[in-house]
Write a protein that binds this DNA or RNA. Structure first.
Lengths: 206, 206
DNA sequence: GTCTATACAAAGATAGAC
DNA sequence: GTCTATCTTTGTATAGAC
C-alpha cells in the first residue's frame, strides 16, 4: 500500500505544519499569523499547507479545537467525579489548571479571545450548574457546613485565582529585579496549596 | 483664522475616525481590523484616515495609549494615596476596576493582549512594590495585625477576582437560561462588596 | 477638508512541473 | 509529496480633482 508510506516517519510535512500552526496560532491568534509564517516555521513550502489543509481557516480550526479541549476537558471530568468531595474537587481544579498553564501558557488567553468571538461555541455554565460538584455544594450549604454563597461567584473565584495570574504575568514581569520564569513557576506551585485555603476561608464567612 | 473652522463642530471626520477606531481596535485588536472597516464604521472615505493619521499603525497607537491609561491610571493613584488605609485601598481598587469594566468591558482583554506582545511597555510590578500601599501592608504584617502574605500573591488575588470575571464572561454566558447582561451587572456590583471581604478573610489565615 | 481613482504591497490559493 | 510560478483578492497608502 503506497498510500501510507509516510505514516511511520516522525517528522513528515503534515505533522510539521500542525506543530508550526499550533505554536503560532496559539500565541498570536488567527489574524496576526500569515500562512507564509507557518510555512517558514515548519520549514516547508506554502503550497503544501493548502495541499494538506485546503485553507488557513481549516488549519486554524484544528488548533482551536485542540486548545478548547485542553482547556475544558479535565475541568468537566473533575466536576463530575462522584468519588471525590467538593473540597477535593476544588483542590483538583486549581492544580489541574495551574499544571496546564505552566505547560501551555498561551492556551488560556487564546481560549478567552476565541470565546469572546464565538461565545456560542463554549457552554460552560450549563456544565457547571448541572455538575456533581454543584449538588455537593448545595448539600453542604443546606446542612450549614458552609455559609451560603452564590455558585457562580464561587466558580469565578476558583478559576480567577488559578488562571488570571498567568494571563497578567507580562504586566508583573517588568525589566529589572522582576519576576523571572523560575520564580513564576515557584509562585504558581505555591498557589496550588494556597488557593484552596483561601477559597475555604471565604466559605466560612457568614 | 480659517484653519480652525471645523474645531467647533462635534462630529467632524477626525473625531468620527477615532471613535470608530476605538470601538473596533479595542474589541478586535490590531490585525483583525481593516482600515476599510474603520472608514465604513466612521462613515468616511479610507483616504481620510491616512490624511489625518498617516497610517493604521499610528491610529492604533492612539487607541492603545488611551486604553492603557484607562486601565492603569486610577490604579496607581489609589495605591499611593497617603490618606487612606490599606483596607480602604483594597476596596477602592476593586470598585474602581469593576466600574471601569462595566463601562469599558473590552479594555481588560485588549490591555492583556497588548501586554503580552510588548511586556516592556508595562511597568506595574515596580509601581506596586514601591507604593504607599506596600508599606502599609508590611507594617500591618510586622505588627501582627494580619498574617504574613506574599505581596505579589495578594495583589494578584485582588485584581484576579475583580477583572477575570469580565474576561471569562463569554464562557459563562451561554445561550438559554444564562447570565443576561443585567444579571452580570448585578453580580459584579455585588462583588464590589464581596471581594474585599474575601480578601480580608484570607489575611486572617495563619 | 473630503472625495474618486488608483498605485503598490501583502496574503491566500491554485496549476502544473518534477 | 513537494516545489516554482502565478493568479486573485484584499489591504494600505497616495495623487489629484473638487
Amino acid at each position: 500500500m503506497t498510500k501510507s508510506k509516510q505514516k511511520n516517519t516522525e517528522d513528515n510535512a503534515e505533522k510539521k505544519i500542525v506543530e508550526a500552526a499550533r505554536k503560532l496560532f496559539t500565541s498570536k491568534g488567527y489574524d496576526a499569523v500569515k500562512t507564509r509564517d507557518i510555512a517558514e516555521e515548519a520549514g516547508i513550502n506554502i503550497a503544501l499547507l493548502n495541499y494538506y489543509f485546503r485553507s488557513k481557516e481549516k488549519l486554524f480550526e484544528i488548533i482551536m479545537v485542540e486548545n478548547m479541549q485542553k482547556f475544558f476537558n479535565g475541568f468537566s471530568q473533575i466536576l463530575n467525579d462522584e468519588k471525590t468531595t467538593y473540597r477535593k474537587k476544588i483542590e483538583l481544579i486549581v492544580s489541574n489548571y495551574i499544571d496546564m498553564i505552566l505547560k501551555a501558557p498561551d492556551t488560556p488567553l487564546f481560549v478567552l479571545n476565541q470565546a469572546k468571538l464565538y461565545p456560542e461555541c463554549v457552554q460552560v455554565r450549563k456544565i457547571v450548574m448541572n455538575s456533581c460538584f454543584m449538588k455537593q455544594l448545595q448539600d453542604a450549604i443546606k446542612s450549614k457546613e458552609i455559609a451560603p454563597i452564590n455558585e457562580i461567584n464561587l466558580m469565578l473565584n476558583i478559576v480567577s485565582l488559578s488562571i488570571f495570574p498567568c494571563i497578567a504575568r507580562p504586566i508583573f514581569q517588568t525589566g529589572e529585579g522582576s519576576l523571572t520564569h523560575d520564580r513564576f513557576v515557584e509562585l504558581m506551585n505555591e498557589r496550588k496549596k494556597l488557593i484552596p485555603k483561601w477559597i475555604f476561608a471565604t466559605l466560612k464567612i457568614k
